[in-house]
Computed example of a mutant assay.
Amino acid sequence: MPGVGGLPSREAPEWAPLRENVADYVPHRTLARRESTTTAGEDVYYLTFDSDTRPTGWAVDRLIGDGIAYITGQVSPLHVSLQATAAVIATLYAAAAVERSWPNDDQSLQRANDMEKRMADMLVALVSANDRANGGDGEPGDADKLMLAYSFPAPVAWGDSYL
């Protein structure tokens, strides 16, 4: 893959999904219609994205990059044991964006909503699992469990005279 999100592949994380992974969730988007064909039976499903598909492979690479940015913004540092899960979430992000951005039938937006719901549920689980893997307890809302500690200077003997 030349890169993700317009970045050279050396800057993409090793767990970055490929165009083919996105195509697994939206295979109907990989249909390449040829001008020379006269029947739909001669059209080909590539099961990847390239310059002949709608959206193009370049557009899908950018969506994959957006999905990676979304995940790394929520989960950092990502534990190595959870990279495959992060790749699935980034793939769902890109597939949902394809359906939402290039709707081709009445069900496109519903498919996008369904994938986004699945992605959100998986992201919550990923955050929790990542916290446990990195030494935390994995419970959501750990910030709510913090106890504030205050420190005040010792009172002065003449302080009551101000009352």
Rank of each mutant, 00 (worst) to 15 (best):
V127K: 09
V98S: 05
E42W: 13
T38C: 10
T56A: 15
R62W: 13
L126A: 03
R118N: 10
G41P: 07
L31P: 06
L123N: 05
G41K: 08
Y70N: 00
R54V: 15
T85V: 11
A90N: 04
R100K: 13
A86W: 08
T39G: 14
L109R: 12
D131G: 05
W102H: 10
W58D: 15
S76Y: 07
T56W: 05
R100M: 06
V98C: 10
L126H: 05
E42L: 14
T30V: 06
D106C: 09
A40C: 10
P77F: 04
A129S: 11
R29K: 14
V44N: 11
V88D: 15
A59S: 13
A95H: 07
G65L: 02
D121T: 14
Y45C: 04
A94K: 08
Q74I: 00
R34T: 09
L78C: 07
Q74N: 07
P103I: 05
L126S: 00
E116I: 09
D52L: 14
Q83P: 03
I68V: 09
I89R: 06
A87K: 03
E35L: 12
R111L: 05
G73E: 04
L92H: 02
S108D: 09
L92T: 00
I64N: 08
A133Q: 07
A87H: 04
N104M: 12
R132D: 03
S51L: 12
R62T: 14
L92Y: 07
G73M: 07
R132Y: 06
R62H: 15
A84V: 12
S108P: 01
N130L: 06
D50Y: 11
V80D: 11
T48A: 08
A125M: 13
G136W: 03
G57V: 08
D114N: 15
Q83V: 08
Q110W: 08
T48H: 03
D137G: 01
A40V: 12
D66A: 15
N134E: 04
D61W: 06
A32Q: 11
M122W: 11
E35C: 02
A59V: 13
R118L: 12
V75E: 06
E99Y: 02
D66Y: 09
Q83F: 03
L78F: 03
D105V: 08
T53K: 01
R62L: 13
R33V: 13
P103M: 06
L92R: 11
S101F: 00
A95Y: 00
T53L: 04
A90T: 02
A133G: 03
S76L: 01
D105E: 06
V98T: 07
T39N: 14
V88H: 13
N113C: 00
S101D: 14
R33M: 11
D121L: 14
G138M: 01
P55V: 10
V80C: 05
W58C: 12
N130P: 04
S81D: 14
A95W: 02
M122E: 13
V44Q: 14
T85W: 03
V75A: 05
N130Y: 02
N134H: 04
I89K: 03
L109I: 09
S108I: 02
A32G: 09
R100V: 00
G73L: 04
T48V: 07
A87D: 00
D137H: 02
I64S: 07
D50Q: 10
E99Q: 10
A59Q: 15
T30N: 01
